[in-house]
Design a protein around this nucleic acid. Sequence first.
DNA 1: CTTGGCACTCTGCTTCCACGAGTGCCAGGA
DNA 2: TCCTGGCACTCGTGGAAGCAGAGTGCCAAG
Lengths: 334, 334
Amino acid sequence: MLDDRKLEVLRAIVEDFVSTNEPVGSKALAERHGLGVSPATVRNDMAALEDEGYITHPHTSAGRIPTDRGYRLFVDRLSQVKPLSPPERRAIQTFLEGAVDLDDVVRRSVRLLSQLTQQVAVVQYPSLSRAEVRHLEIVHLAPNRLLLVLITDSGRVEQRVVELHGAVSDEDVSVIRALLGSRLHGATLLDTPAKLSDLPDAAPPALRPVLTSVLSVVLASLVDKPEERVAIGGTANLTRSALDFPRTLRPVLEALEEQVVLLRLLGEVNDPTTVHVKIGEENVVEGLQSTSVVTVGYGAGALGVLGPTRMDYPGAIGSVRAVARYVGDLLSGA
Amino acid sequence: MLDDRKLEVLRAIVEDFVSTNEPVGSKALAERHGLGVSPATVRNDMAALEDEGYITHPHTSAGRIPTDRGYRLFVDRLSQVKPLSPPERRAIQTFLEGAVDLDDVVRRSVRLLSQLTQQVAVVQYPSLSRAEVRHLEIVHLAPNRLLLVLITDSGRVEQRVVELHGAVSDEDVSVIRALLGSRLHGATLLDTPAKLSDLPDAAPPALRPVLTSVLSVVLASLVDKPEERVAIGGTANLTRSALDFPRTLRPVLEALEEQVVLLRLLGEVNDPTTVHVKIGEENVVEGLQSTSVVTVGYGAGALGVLGPTRMDYPGAIGSVRAVARYVGDLLSGA
DNA sequence: CTTGGCACTCTGCTTCCACGAGTGCCAGGA
DNA sequence: TCCTGGCACTCGTGGAAGCAGAGTGCCAAG
């Protein structure tokens, strides 16, 4: 059905359309790419590609533009990842290494990705559930109020206030701190319930009420529904493609304001090591049907970019992959 | 020069234009507002207002729209703050009280403000320099690497990694923790340099190198240039006024991506208790000359909204003030 | 299977015109 | 002195018409 030349035509259409944002006609295409055939032949191929649903017409007498399906084929079979240049790699590395803490790493990654790809960038914080506990601190804020501070190996710091029913002494707090600390150090949050289940029984009776309050907060807010966080940046890049989003910019911005939506975008990554590309209507998220998303896991989390379906996929995939690698190294090393 | 009726005309123009987004003509104005005078009279007043620079024409045969100067006069002398309704107040309070930690408070405030005002909302995290140290924890990450965790009374948690030149023992870390803790507990970060200046001398000689490293990190990254943070939300609201930003949406989004810019917007608040309004060209920030900003301090930080100059100022001022009050209470109480 | 030719169909742009909103000015009246 | 009705004028908007150009689909010949 689709011989090599037809695929070549599709590739040319995608590349031209991505760079010019204008429907591409048979004549221009035959000239600019060295296909060695006449416009008429190209037209025949185009008709075939259109029959198969890879390209379409905006209107009768305009050139062709790729459909979502066309981009899909392009990404899967017609393109190869554009690797970054060595200077770019060095720049990424030095920029990321300048970060002073986890927040800074994430913020820098977002900025980096959005500048490299000229798209919207999304970076997830290292997931809590997969993280190891490096330190658990209990601060005695008030007689009946404690602050739990959890530090993970990926550098995340989570805090929760625990309201107690009665007052508790500094000494008791120390005991609890020691108890919890010894149990949890080095554990992942997934292990936590098992590690803590018998703790109230093992503790001195006087401390049990307090311990129970503390545990319920730990389990409820850190284990059962661990808070996932994401950072986003480069939204200004959406306006560059104002032509791509006739009236759809609104819903896109709205969707991007929702943490839940962003997490879904990043979370649909099954295999964490390969780059995933969602194109147009493949996105189930409301409001993002006219966008494409390129994501990849970096170890304890995921990151990616979002832009119009008319996107430089090879470049985006290359950048996303490279940044993910550096971020992954950085976070597992620190 | 400007008698009461002229001011009334200006007020009517501002209110009409804000609600309809269309230049307002003399006839419609004379009818809809009970001015009791003829369109011709209104026209004369309009001419006077235009001479004074309070209103202008988009083109010869269109109605009038307010200038920045007109809005300024409106805000200063012709409008009164629109207080929130009791149900609204209750909703704010319950929504904010549901927050589990500082990040959550800030995120909720942003969402609240942007929904109340239908504008872009900006909320600064409580400033570090004005905060009191509630707890300073030192975690021994590796033989020659420490993690400092600073918790302030406003709930902020800052972390910094300290790389040491040589290994240090757990016991030494405990000593340093105790030393620093006793000195800093209850101090503000502004007091810190004074409180710590003689510390190396007072400490056991063996610990001095380590202590010096720790102190230099504390002073450099927490005191000398304390990290200010801001959260932003509701950018989708900018598209609602696509008519207001003909082609200027781009620079606005770009400006909003810069933490520095946001801090400048919020930072120009001198008197922290009153609401400040910057209108259009009054904004020195590049790219925001077509927007207005309404800000107020809430105690340890500031918050505000940003939108087109065509903004419901009384409503925005009311919302900003109310939210600031609740946030302030919440953060000083917690 | 490829190619050149040709008729056809659109869109985008320009021009033109009529309409209507709104203004500025003036002269008369309170 | 100020308000008012009247009137001529300006100018942007919107629809109709016409034109040029790009691009297509199809066909018959190589």
